[in-house]
Write a protein that binds this DNA or RNA. Structure first.
Lengths: 208, 208
DNA sequence: GTTTACATACATGCGCGTCTGTATGTAAAC
DNA sequence: GTTTACATACAGACGCGCATGTATGTAAAC
């Protein structure tokens, strides 16, 4: 039966929220629409009313939850930025803090890490494009920082970007395995300082 | 129709070999018996003739392919071993070389890494027990090496064992991503030397 | 009265385990 | 050596549960 427009929108958001939760816990492929529906307190019919199929649901989640994450990364790779390294450090701290304290942010992060793992199958295009865009932004930031003398010329920007990714993800994975043992948010400063130390020593890719 | 005993055994081995190949490529859960069967040139009926179910097939694979791997690790953790660190180094080199050059060994390794990844679901008991057994052996070896003055007392054996695992797996994953860019087997000496350097500096777990 | 926002029913495909049928190996009887 | 009886090693079909997408029913909003 028909609901109010507000109720319908609440249903839509509940579906997306539960889907994101389950996608991050089990992966997109291994999550069934039935469990999303029952978790959101509706039936599969409601999902199909609001979304064309599972991938349309994923797209909607992406649009809804990704924009704040995207916005986080805007400032630091601008070429006019006078303190690119400082901005990058702020960004990395914010990512770490949000990873621990913002549930939706964390779930998006985990879903992306899961879907891009070496052991996963085909990476959804949107996720792949996003990860690549973020990687390019980091490269630009690192190059900007090198031009401004903040980082040594011996730094390979691509290697540096990968190193940042690996270290941030490594910390988040470690925390996911034992969340009661330490707090990322409390140690965000230290963690980011460690990354900066590594960058200042210059990083190169094996074989380059 | 009936085959000779030899042919039947060949069918059984073909099924196991193809299953191991696909388990390592896609994971156990995501591999269907149909694709194993067609890959081995038989039907699912033949699989059910030889094995009770998918997990019986997995058990048979484990028994068939795991014994040589198990044998690899026997020597180095014996308490009477006079050069535990040397033996450990030999073992690690052998693992790296076999990872590149022995297809079955590599597939078993990849299957285990895949099934024990943080993103995977429930770990098969046999794999979990095996990984834990190997971990305990490394701990015993490291403690033995410390008693013999080969490694510093500041080394936390458990952390050292985990570090070894992470570094070996990291190298293998990197190689899997770009096998034409470098050879693990050729660099086995260097890689193992790097691990020994880290161990000699002493390793502790975060928070300990 | 029409449209909407669902719930429910239906159709289809996939994967698994079970069952049946078939051709052939093998050993024993003749 | 030939024939027979039985067992074996499969191929292929069946039934079931699960998941997805589509069609239809229903009550309430508009």
């Amino acid at each position: 039966m028909r609901r109010t427009k507000q109720e319908a929108e609440e249903t839509r958001l509940a579906i997306m929220s539960k889907a994101l939760e389950l996608f991050s816990e089990k992966g997109i492929a291994a999550t069934s629409l039935s469990e999303i529906a029952s978790g959101a307190g509706v039936t599969r019919g409601a999902i199909y009313w609001h979304f064309k199929n599972k991938w349309d649901l994923f797209d909607a989640i992406w649009q809804h939850y990704c924009e704040p994450i995207d916005r986080l990364g805007q400032a630091s790779h601008d070429e006019d930025e006078t303190d690119p390294l400082g901005k990058l450090a702020e960004l990395l701290k914010l990512i770490l803090i949000n990873a621990e304290q913002d549930v939706d942010f964390r779930r998006m992060l985990i879903m992306c890490m899961r879907e891009t793992s070496i052991w996963s199958g085909e990476v959804p295009e949107r996720i792949e494009a996003f990860i690549d865009e973020i990687h390019q932004r980091r490269i630009r930031t690192l190059r900007n920082a090198m031009r401004k003398g903040q980082l040594p010329d011996t730094l390979d920007a691509e290697a540096g970007s990968l190193m940042i990714k690996v270290m941030i993800e490594g910390v988040i994975v470690s925390w996911l395995q034992r969340p009661q043992c330490f707090s990322i948010a409390e140690r965000a400063d230290q963690i980011v300082d460690s990354i900066l130390v590594v960058l200042r020593h210059g990083v190169r890719l094996p074989g380059s």
